[in-house]
Design a protein around this nucleic acid. Structure first.
Length: 574
RNA sequence: CGGUAAUUGGCGCAGUUUGGUAGCGCACUUGGUUUGGGUCCAAGGGGUCGCAGGUUCAAAUCCUGCAUUACCGACCA
């Protein structure tokens, strides 16, 4: 490709609404342009990368014996009503009507269409197990699209679905797909981790997320320093402290604390660590049937810990989804305002986090406006409480796997695999005849990869102040040729042309910067676009029949004989 | 959806306080100049200042309403 016959579309300045580095660089390197909020046009350079990611995913899916197909983006509303997600999905599901007034949705995912296809086309256990996939555009009307291709409303996804009779068979395919995902991220050249995940609203039991590690990631991942254990922070269990609780040494004392309402205030006032204080959060409990009364539940954590709402919901006492009680509700139930709450004498179920339950002589609200209690102790001052894991793990916690301690890093979720079980197949009555000739509902697995998000994640992980540094597997071009002042030197022009022809002949994806630009402009543009292998052709070296090779990733430079360039590059590209 | 801010040629911004014929840099076109790290000079094309209404002799500027966009909070590949 010659730049004069291409659309390079690089920018010197960063459009002002780009926040994260991958978004900025994708705009500046001429990969994407915004059409509207969360909607992007992929320019030629962006498409070249996108297609390479797709190709790797496609190869590994095929290798895992998944079969490619293609389903429509526009899907009939009836299917979504049948699965129950027409109501469940909420405003993120974009709905529309055709000219006859019939309801449709823009597909945010394809479980329904897939299940519909399988119930019609697969009728015997002899056809199982079977896995289908597609690489296709999805639409999710996100509340807040941001970060460019990282979280857009329209995006490219690979989604796969497997079907089985037995759980064992589903497990087996799940393992195969897990391995296929590892192969994909390995080949992409990304630093990634599979992590144990919450299966969220899609449902089902077993689930893993695949995260690309990057500081700009939106998820916290907890790792063990001594094993392979990795889990989304929302899922990682906070183990009970192993040291026994200290004995009570202080008397319970009420202290006036008129201006202290937060944990920070209290810790400063009493000159103690936040970990010696307790915070009490009032949330909505589960309503009794045929009762209008809204029960409340008190959740108690150490002052320095954060509540994990998924864990709270799992206690069985807390409403789904977890919601905080309003100030009025709290005032009515406890007679005090939120800043002075404590577990002592509360007339509602009290659930105490394991770490908080291990404290002795701690400080908590006195349930009296403007007062806190010091020297509080469990069992002596508070009784009738329940102990559970309620908090997010923090750096330095013992790993739940039993080996090592946890550290926490940011990750970008680029893949997610689930064992769905029979959730959709039951709702949509998708079964096959088993070996007894009886109809049996199918087990289902689903496996997603965010193709366009991978492009952004790869940039987050591979850039410097000059621009992108592509992993070779997904580089938009394999080689760039940068001639110095070609229009003034026939020798430079001739050599550049010869190398270009040779590389094309050898099947190398080469970008020939044949613009009449000053060298600095070319260098800057090409470093921004981020192609690894660069050949600079200049008068300076031509007397010795040499050209210059530069590696964008390693920074290595060397001089090459003109005749050896093609072979040299072919060996580098592999 | 709530909170904050913004909206002026393709991009980045000034001009708004104090109303008086719309400006700068980048990009683009033409000519020249320069040539191994974003040259320099000259000429040129392109904007009814987000939209609607109001105040005024006069509105990018003041007032009202609406829209769009970005950032901070709950979902997800």
């Amino acid at each position: 490709m010659r730049t004069t016959e291409y659309l390079l579309a690089t920018l010197k300045e960063t459009p002002s609404d780009a926040e994260v580095i991958s978004h900025q660089l994708m705009l500046r390197a001429g990969m994407i342009r915004k059409l509207a909020a969360g909607l992007y046009t992929w320019l030629p350079t962006g498409v070249r990368v996108l297609k390479k990611v797709e190709a790797i995913v496609r190869e590994e899916m095929n290798r895992a014996k998944a079969i490619e197909m293609l389903m429509p983006i526009v899907q009939p509303a009836e299917l979504w009503q049948e699965s129950g997600r027409w109501e469940q999905y909420g405003p993120e599901l974009a709905r529309l009507n055709d000219r006859h007034g019939r309801g449709f949705v823009l597909g945010p995912t394809h479980e329904e269409v897939m299940t519909e296809m399988v119930r019609n086309q697969i009728s015997s256990y002899k056809q199982l197990p079977i896995t289908f996939y597609q690489i296709q555009t999805k639409f999710r009307d996100e509340i807040r699209p941001r970060f460019g291709a990282m979280r857009s409303r329209e995006f490219v996804m690979k989604d796969a679905y497997s079907f089985h009779l037995s759980n064992e068979c589903m497990d087996k395919t799940y393992e195969i797909m897990h391995q296929a995902y590892c192969n994909i991220f390995e080949r992409l050249g990304l630093d990634y981790r599979p992590v144990v995940a919450d299966s969220g609203s899609i449902g089902g039991a077993v689930s893993h997320e695949f995260h690309v590690l990057a500081d700009s990631g939106e998820d916290d991942i907890a790792f063990s320093d001594a094993s392979d254990y990795a889990a989304n922070v929302e899922m990682a269990e906070a183990l009970a402290p192993t040291t026994p609780r200290a004995a009570a040494t202080e008397q319970l004392t009420e202290v006036a604390t008129p201006n202290a309402h937060t944990i920070d205030d209290i810790a400063k006032l009493f000159k103690v660590e936040a970990s010696q204080t307790i915070k009490t959060l009032i949330v909505h409990g589960i309503k009794e049937e045929d009762s209008d009364e809204q029960p409340l539940v008190a959740l108690v954590l150490r002052g320095d810990h954060q509540l994990n709402d998924i864990k709270a919901e799992k206690t069985g006492s807390v409403a789904h989804p977890m919601t905080f009680a309003s100030d009025e509700e709290i005032k009515q139930a406890t007679g005090t305002n939120p800043g002075s709450l404590g577990p002592i004498g509360l007339k509602m179920p009290v659930i105490v986090d394991r770490s908080a339950a291990n404290l002795a002589d701690f400080i908590c609200g006195a349930n009296k406006d403007g007062y806190h209690s010091t020297g509080a102790n469990w069992d002596r001052d508070i009784t009738g409480f329940e102990v559970a894991d309620l908090r997010n793990v923090v750096e330095g916690d013992a790993s739940p796997c039993g080996n090592g301690t946890l550290s926490i890093k940011r990750g970008i979720e680029v893949g997610h695999i689930f064992q769905l079980g029979k959730k959709y197949t039951t709702a949509m009555n998708a079964g096959v005849l088993n070996d007894n000739g009886k109809n049996e509902i199918l087990n289902m697995g689903c496996y997603g990869i965010g193709i366009s998000r991978i492009v952004a994640a790869a940039i987050e992980q591979n850039h410097d102040k000059y621009g992108i540094k592509w992993p070779e597997a997904i580089t938009p071009f394999q080689v760039v040729l940068i001639p110095m002042n070609m229009h003034k030197s026939h020798r430079v022009a001739d050599v550049a042309q010869k190398l270009y022809d040779e590389l094309l002949e050898a099947g190398v994806e080469v970008l020939f910067d044949d613009r009449k630009e000053r060298p600095g402009v070319m260098f800057n543009d090409m470093e921004l676009v981020g192609v690894t292998h660069t050949i600079v052709i200049g008068e300076r070296n031509l007397d010795e029949q040499l050209v210059e090779y530069k590696n964008r990733r390693s920074g290595d430079k060397e001089k090459l004989a003109i005749d050896s360039v093609t072979d040299f590059l072919k060996s580098k590209i592999g």
